[in-house]
Nucleic acid binder design. Structure first.
Lengths: 351, 351
DNA sequence: TTGTATGCGTTATCAG
DNA sequence: CTGATAACGCATACAA
């Protein structure tokens, strides 16, 4: 017959005198206070449960808990209660400051609601995304906010438990989870209108991966509005933007339109200092754009609202409320720098 | 006598026919395959344990596991094994792209080593830091990388289990954990030398929180090298930089030195377009600096090496190796933009 | 080669 | 008001 104990290497808690290398447990406190684990648990739980315990034992237990430096084992609690008070945010590229800001705000907001955030990065790699989508529920997260990659619809439905609170950020997928995003049509129209008023007619287009809905949609709508002299596709990185500019060198477009800010930054990196640079049209803010010696216009999304929207969409699901949740769709605004304004007012179209 | 079952609301696993809302467990598979949990556990564990199981049952079990869509409950495993294969990275400001890049690389590297990363943000708020330092070990992380705030020495020692694998990033604290950082003296000397060669003599200084070792040290060393006309202190945000520039407006310093990139960006935000802008000297890269119409020099840290250093320092600790770990101290390099180079070569000091 | 039993630390049920 | 006890799902020492 197997004897109890001596299964895993036992912690050093027993050795009295020196600081324990691992926190005391309910059992330790129960022993110390001559009570039972249940009592200790109730006292430490606080609230209604604790109210039913006599003041005397309550004090005795709390005192011992403090003295022994008790720290609840959240893993055990999680296993028992099936709640972790942890939400995961799976972004597609944490190196992109745009996601950094989102993450910052989401964390802050969730924190106020008693949740901590586990931030993960798929790095725009579908395999990594799959891996995380599989892993995170196993780790016992209570909810998930995700910026989905390419073909994630099937993937999401296959990998995620159907009852996991879920919010899609930036890239909604009809019929899957709740979502928070910007109105791509409005954004693109805004950008195009602004470019047009500055006299742009012939443009070059730099486009991120077409599988990603935002890039695809933006490119479509832009193409419908302007005469596209040339187009360059690639991953949504600065390098792609840089390559694109080189390719466009001889074309003399009125504007170069990029389907996101990273591409825009890449183009600008490559421009250097030329005589009459084309206008750069982009989505989301380009760093330091107001000081650049290049006309720039961006259709920027409202980051704080996006972040808060995620939490707004997630919380009722976490609370187990079943009513249908409406997608949140936000409006973008146009931001231009001084060079752009000069070009727009001073001289209409080029030449 | 308490009857078994009916304790927590039971999952819908029992209902056959529709997809289970929660993954099957070892017990389910054991039942299904007419074996025991231990056998199933061994088969699914793979490796040495699985080798000791007959091919027949092994196949039967694996087949059932796949068919039933088994997913190990990592929380339970964690509780049992006391390992989570999760490392936390606690940064001071995830909205800062510098940390975003670090996080990106650390995650990538840890991932290769079989760990997933939990990224948390203290937002430069000591209370939040304390909270996370207390919380994370309770959540069962295997190791921690932290960019410590102000007075974290005591805090770190009090809150963290002494045997938790620990790496301090960017801001070493003598005697606490392993560390990865840049040589502040070298960086500052490099920056000052470069500024001096461009003719800077009188400077203004913008400094982040003095409690943070990097800001304090940089400010000290810079002050020793130049004639400091004025100084502005505040949190390491763009706003502080902007305020500083306003304050410096009438002073006409040769250069404005900032103890980090956020402050530098703030100053540049405020500069707008002036006739003869001062040189901006800063630590770490300033976005789009090569295109700015302002002379800029930065002492930049090697982000990939910092990130890889964290992992290098952490892994042996995770493996339980006890040998002393040497701090990693990296060298920075100077980066200047074209305007700076013009000023440095074309004309020495200002008029 | 396989099954039985125990415990990780917690919460929740049930019986005093 | 309090204590004994059963799970949560998994891994493992031990017995067979």
């Amino acid at each position: 017959m197997p004897r109890p104990g001596g299964d895993l290497p036992s912690p050093v808690r027993a050795i009295s005198g020196d600081p324990p290398t691992v926190s005391a447990t309910l059992v330790d406190i129960a022993k110390e206070t001559q009570t039972s684990v249940s009592t200790v648990s109730r006292v430490l739980a606080g609230g209604a449960a604790a109210a039913r315990i006599s003041q005397a034992t309550r004090d005795r237990v709390s005192e011992a808990a403090v003295r022994m430096g008790y720290r609840p084992n959240l893993v055990a609690r999680s296993l028992r209660t099936r709640r972790s008070n942890t939400v995961a945010l799976l972004v597609s590229d944490i190196a992109n400051p745009w996601f950094g800001q989102i993450a910052f705000l989401v964390e802050q907001s969730l924190h106020r609601h008693g949740y901590s955030l586990m931030l993960c990065n798929s790095g725009e790699d579908p395999d990594r995304e799959v891996e995380y989508l599989r892993l995170l529920p196993q780790k016992g997260i209570d909810g998930l906010i995700v910026v989905p990659l390419a073909r994630s619809k099937k993937v999401l439905e296959e990998l995620l438990p159907p009852d996991l609170p879920l919010v899609l950020l930036d890239r909604p997928i009809p019929g899957v989870g709740a979502s928070v995003s910007s109105d791509q049509a409005q954004a693109t129209t805004l950008l195009c209108d602004t470019l047009e008023r500055a006299g742009a007619r012939d443009i070059a287009l730099v486009c991120g991966p077409e599988q990603i809905s935002t890039h695809r949609r933006r490119a479509e709508l832009v193409s419908a509005r302007f005469n596209v002299l040339a187009r360059h596709d690639g991953p949504a990185t600065r390098e792609t933007g840089t390559q694109a500019f080189v390719k466009f060198l001889s074309l003399q477009p009125d504007a170069i339109v990029c389907t996101n800010n990273f591409l825009g930054q890449g183009v600008i990196d490559a421009i250097g200092e030329v005589e009459a640079p084309p206008i750069i049209g982009s989505f989301d803010e380009i760093a330091m754009m107001h000081l650049l010696p290049i006309p720039v216009v961006c259709a920027v999304q409202d980051i704080p609202l996006l972040a808060e929207g995620c939490v707004t969409q997630l919380l009722p699901q976490l609370r187990g409320e079943k009513r249908e949740i409406q997608p949140i769709v936000l409006t973008t605004r146009a931001v231009t720098n001084r060079r752009f304004q000069e070009r727009a007012t001073g001289w209409g179209a080029r030449s």
